[in-house]
Simulated assay, not measured.
Amino acid sequence: MVSTDAIEGVLLGLACGDALGRPLEFTSADSIASEHGSVTELLGNGTHGKPRGTVTDDTELMLRIARSLVENERFDGQDIADRFLEWFEDDPFDIGLMTADALREYSHGTDWRSAGQEVWQHRQEGSNAGNGSVMRCAPYAIAFADEPATLRKVSKQSSAITHYDPRCRYGCVILNETIAGYLRGEDEPLADALARVEGEAPEELVETLRLVPDLVSPDDLRTTPYVVHTLQTALYDALTADSAEEAIISAVNRGGDTDTIGAVAGAVAGARFGTESLPDRWLEQLDYREGLSLLARSLATTEISATV
């Protein structure tokens, strides 16, 4: 049986990575080191000028997926899109360009299954495969940890609401299967996830992630919002660390897209090590701390339909 500690670790780890990285978003590693040395505490102000413990769109959209799954007891793409749109119309302080464009498209009447594709088709290479869907997809790994076929399907469908590119859709599949593998106690869930999508997922994505953790140098890891870079860096830190805290600190101090890389690393490391490896000093200041724990437990115990 999957431990409650590991289940809660997924959502709390994601939120902790998001909150630690939020004040440093778009800051270089050299600038972080020059000003802070190594950031190990939740900071206030910084990028976006928010209080310590504040989370961004990474956690906000993840929460909307989790609540939809629990309240509807099934995957409902339209309900999730509606929840995303309600959040978008409340003028969030942080939102990715593709997410904003897709939700604007959805608000104009395009079906939730097509909104992300419509936006993607008009984007040039280099601006069409961001990390805005991998950052939020972890609730599916909890809800469908024992339903791998359903997990793959909902991961792709949920990504496509805003991020249709195959690298994004299969990025969500690989990430969620890795998280679910850790929840099931597997020894090498990333390798297993990559083996299951070989020949189906984009080759660049699979080959880049196959280098993790032993065949890539830490100096070669990149911290851009490109989904392939985000996944490689976040997975490297999650798989090589000795605790969730260490994974998140390493990811965030690399600079760049710190909130999202921290969030993805935190979700994987949270599944790997559990909540006990997240420091109380973070959890005590974290937005939605109690709600995240409750939602994680509900995702694991609610009978969520595998029918998509």
Results as ranks from 00 to 15, higher is better:
residue 255 G to R: 03
residue 287 D to G: 08
residue 295 L to P: 04
residue 149 A to S: 08
residue 277 S to D: 14
residue 173 V to C: 05
residue 85 L to I: 02
residue 126 G to L: 10
residue 164 Y to E: 14
residue 191 A to I: 01
residue 245 E to H: 15
residue 176 N to D: 15
residue 140 Y to G: 04
residue 190 L to W: 02
residue 21 G to N: 09
residue 13 G to S: 09
residue 72 N to E: 13
residue 184 R to S: 13
residue 196 R to N: 09
residue 150 T to A: 08
residue 4 T to F: 08
residue 201 A to L: 02
residue 113 R to G: 06
residue 91 D to H: 14
residue 169 R to M: 15
residue 207 E to I: 01
residue 91 D to F: 10
residue 13 G to I: 03
residue 54 T to E: 09
residue 282 W to Q: 04
residue 68 S to W: 03
residue 117 Q to T: 11
residue 22 R to Q: 12
residue 109 G to R: 11
residue 95 I to Y: 10
residue 276 E to Y: 10
residue 244 A to L: 04
residue 263 A to G: 12
residue 18 D to W: 06
residue 6 A to K: 15
residue 18 D to L: 08
residue 174 I to E: 01
residue 203 E to G: 00
residue 147 E to M: 06
residue 37 G to I: 02
residue 69 L to C: 00
residue 258 T to Y: 12
residue 145 A to L: 06
residue 146 D to I: 00
residue 66 A to W: 02
residue 35 E to R: 14
residue 221 L to D: 06
residue 23 P to W: 05
residue 104 R to S: 13
residue 17 G to I: 00
residue 257 D to E: 15
residue 249 I to P: 01
residue 195 A to G: 00
residue 57 D to Y: 04
residue 19 A to V: 08
residue 128 N to F: 00
residue 6 A to E: 01
residue 264 V to N: 10
residue 135 M to W: 05
residue 17 G to A: 11
residue 275 T to G: 03
residue 290 E to Q: 15
residue 259 D to F: 02
residue 31 S to M: 12
residue 39 V to K: 03
residue 303 E to K: 09
residue 305 S to V: 12
residue 2 V to T: 15
residue 238 A to I: 07
residue 38 S to C: 13
residue 23 P to E: 03
residue 126 G to M: 09
residue 187 D to P: 00
residue 169 R to Q: 15
residue 114 S to H: 13
residue 116 G to L: 10
residue 185 G to H: 06
residue 57 D to S: 09
residue 196 R to C: 04
residue 127 S to N: 14
residue 189 P to T: 01
residue 249 I to W: 04
residue 99 T to N: 10
residue 222 R to E: 15
residue 107 S to Q: 13
residue 302 T to I: 02
residue 90 D to S: 14
residue 113 R to D: 09
residue 19 A to S: 09
residue 289 R to A: 14
residue 182 Y to E: 10
residue 44 G to D: 09
residue 97 L to I: 11
residue 298 S to D: 15
residue 248 I to F: 02
residue 89 E to I: 07
residue 214 D to M: 01
residue 179 I to R: 05
residue 61 L to F: 06
residue 24 L to M: 12
residue 147 E to V: 02
residue 26 F to M: 13
residue 227 V to N: 03
residue 288 Y to M: 08
residue 92 P to Y: 07
residue 123 R to S: 11
residue 171 G to R: 05
residue 235 L to P: 02
residue 191 A to F: 01
residue 2 V to M: 15
residue 234 A to R: 05
residue 269 A to I: 08
residue 270 G to S: 05
residue 99 T to G: 07
residue 19 A to R: 04
residue 282 W to A: 03
residue 44 G to A: 14
residue 124 Q to S: 13
residue 143 A to N: 00
residue 258 T to L: 11
residue 120 W to E: 12
residue 154 V to C: 00
residue 65 I to C: 07
residue 255 G to S: 06
residue 55 V to Q: 08
residue 244 A to W: 00
